[in-house]
Design a protein around this nucleic acid. Structure first.
Lengths: 213, 213, 213, 213
DNA sequence: CATGAATGAGCTTTCATTCAT
DNA sequence: AATGAATGAAAGCTCATTCAT
């Protein structure tokens, strides 16, 4: 994330050597694995280190404490997620708004469901964390990307684009999370995902045709 | 909730004496207070008991373990929330769909924001918990209520009402949660809340005018 | 037992009424049941009371504390055991020594194995207890009974009857306990029991024929 | 013992560093001390650690739980005991049976009475434990050693040596335990110990002269 | 530097016992 | 007398973190 993390949550050292980078990756992956296998309250630094194939001591070379590890993990995850969304947004420059919506929902959904359990694990890991700042930075970054995309829509954007854009993001992100929390049969889930696109399009259409709200 | 809780999460005994009822209420309220003041990972049974003005032992008379306490708290909360929604749904019987939406969003929003911090606390407490069953029961109950309401709409409901209904709920609940996670300025939050209504109405309208989807 | 129990271990009141006697019996039986079902470290006063169909409060009417309950239980058990041995000893007055041995081992064995699990439970319950005095009183009582029996043997007793008698008791009681601790196949257990009789007889015979040791 | 302990009772890790070995030894010795000083139901992990001069945490580095500690302690004790008996048995190869008996009883008695209170403590600790398997392994090991010894007796062994052997062990072990449970005056105890040898010899003699049982 | 043994505060849970009703 | 809710000391055990090796 571009949000500079609060001082006390920063990783201890930025790894400059190759070996360090590999270790760091191993730690992150191990964290996710432990989260998946043991749940968030069984997530211990010892277990993470063990699974990563390093000693606890080493783990503490990279992160001053557990919170910093989780923070960094979330940061990394959100960073990649934001990147993917930005890419889609750039690809959709100048397309029709309806297609943009489909592309956006599609990309977000895919990113979240590719490794469903990982997503779930990260949702959960976040609770132990004061990650509001992280989420806010993510939101702003995505907001900017989608706003630029929508502004370039071939069929215009209507008035108050900023509000519409932010609303759409809240709706999409919120709905997807809601679907994650219920364990609906796959078919029904797919149906709702489809409806989500219809719904966003209907909203956009309504806003475009009645610019004055 | 009407979903009987899993065996291991059931409360230990239902209080029959007056003082027991008082104790139980004190424990629930105290749990919320501790959740608010100290956050979910500082929530200890000792602290809860202390703040409730009872001994730990008493807490364990009513709940076999910490999880059961949190489970019961969520159950209670969701129960009351469902009740409120059901009431609104009954009041709106026969109204216009657009008004129904406004009433529904309004009621849900009010319920969640009356005691913002409590809501936030409960969202967080839920993570330590296997409350999928609880949420599912809640969802089904609300689903039934809103489905009945929408079916009675004076301006008809279009086809595939069940899917539309479930989608609306996921969107509304999800969006509200998303707003809770970001800490937007109040004005912006209010704006988005308003857009949410517009969006749902647009969706409904789109679905009604194109019955065959 | 005739050993007056240490002051602090005495039951609180000697029940004079019929009802009280029934309750007391229920408590004792319940104690054994809990011991069997849950093991000695799951034996709680609450559980005992519950299973006996009385309230904890009532249990404490009869016993000033848990130890007293266990003490009384062991006392009762040893009392009955001693009684049975005494009966056998009286019946064997004047018989041949070899038959006495058989009768003694037989009676003791039967008493212990009639309700194997109960025996085991009581062996275990004793550990929480300072029951040396109880055991000593039991030993003395049995010692007296068997000594009198052996003295009346039709084929004489040899010299140093007291020592021989005490030795026999230690050997018999000890061996039986040992068999209880190992879980030998029944057939083998029966064989050893049989050998025990042979062994005691051989000892007696040796002592009788070589009076001066 | 050579019987691999049940999974849940295995020690957590075998110490590889020197200081770890010291810690482990301190814990074992401390356990015995606490057992002696406070009795088995005052034996707490905290107390053991404290007396060993280490933290509770350290104790739990080596043992997954209290039971495992007690199990390991008993295992160690029985292991050493078995070793001593095996040594004696080897030394007695080819001797006269009567001397074997004396040597066996003597060795066992010495091992048990060298540190009487420790023996008593271990007898008691065992009750909180599911150590049947341990005892069985010990019994089998000793059984093999004494059987081999007896088979080599210069004066022959009679028929059914296996049964005779097992019987002797049950009698010796059981009787010694019984003596431990009563608190007889030392002189009397010594006398009975002596009788025990006589008794075992008489049994052996009887069995040898009547080979067909 | 990496290691992993050691730490100990702090958590959850139990249970003998009391005492207001 | 009988009840059982309440008590709270004390137990077993965990885990983030440190630091001697």
């Amino acid at each position: 994330m571009d949000a500079t993390p609060p001082r006390h949550l920063s990783p201890r050292k930025s790894p400059r050597q190759q070996r360090a980078l590999v270790t760091l990756d191993a730690i992150f992956e191990s964290t996710i694995q432990v989260l998946l296998a043991d749940g968030p309250h069984r997530l211990t630094t010892t277990r993470v280190a063990e699974r990563a194939g390093v000693s606890v001591g080493s783990l503490y070379q990279y992160f001053p404490h557990k919170q910093a590890l989780l923070y960094a993990l979330n940061e990394r995850y959100l960073d990649r997620l934001a990147e993917r969304i930005e890419t889609v947004c750039e690809e959709q420059q100048g397309a029709a708004a309806a297609e943009m919506i489909e592309a956006l929902v599609s990309a977000y959904w895919r990113a979240k469901t590719e490794r469903r359990e990982v997503t779930r694990a990260l949702y959960r890991s976040a609770v132990e964390l004061d990650n509001e700042a992280l989420l806010e930075a993510f939101a702003r970054r995505v907001d900017a990307a989608t706003a630029a995309m929508l502004a370039s829509a071939s069929d215009g954007g209507g008035s108050d684009l900023a509000l519409v854009n932010t609303t759409l993001l809240s709706v999409i992100f919120g709905t997807v999370r809601n679907l994650f929390e219920r364990n609906l049969p796959e078919a029904q889930e797919a149906n709702i995902r489809e409806q989500l696109v219809i719904l966003c399009r209907a909203y956009l259409a309504a806003r475009t045709s009645v610019p004055a709200n």
